[in-house]
């Protein structure tokens, strides 16, 4: 159930990216998609009744949750930060040229 809700969150972000006409809203849509994928990965690695993957003294033979998805998500969070920074840099430049964040007033080029 949690997985399906997580997938719906992904679709909400995708909907935002594809239909919104404001550059900042598009960036927000991306953030939401990223959040859902991160959550998805961490949920995969969760094990019922297991401990966080950090060794503390006097803790023997305990089960730990899977550290690999956590490492992957850490990498992905930083990648998301980098992409957001690039998107914002372009957005602020476009704002200077056109005086608006609205994409309907910005189309010189057509695919």
């Amino acid at each position: 159930m949690a997985y399906i809700l997580c997938f719906i969150l992904f679709l909400v972000g995708l909907y935002g990216v594809l239909t919104k006409r404001n550059l900042i809203k598009i960036v927000i849509g991306f953030s939401i998609m990223e959040f859902s994928v991160f959550l998805f990965l961490v949920m995969i690695g969760y094990i019922d009744g297991a401990q966080a993957p950090i060794l503390i003294e006097g803790m023997k033979n305990t089960e730990f949750v899977d550290p690999l998805p956590q490492a992957m998500v850490l990498t992905a969070i930083v990648i998301g930060l980098a992409t957001t920074a690039m998107l914002l840099a372009i957005a602020i430049r476009i704002y200077k040229k056109y005086g608006t964040f609205d994409i309907t007033k910005i189309n010189n080029l057509r695919g």
Partner: peptide, 14 residues
């Protein structure tokens, strides 16, 4: 909740 304190710290600051 999912036992990932590292990620919680990184996510909150990022």
């Amino acid at each position: 909740l999912l036992k990932a304190p590292d990620l919680a710290i990184v996510q909150i600051v990022v």
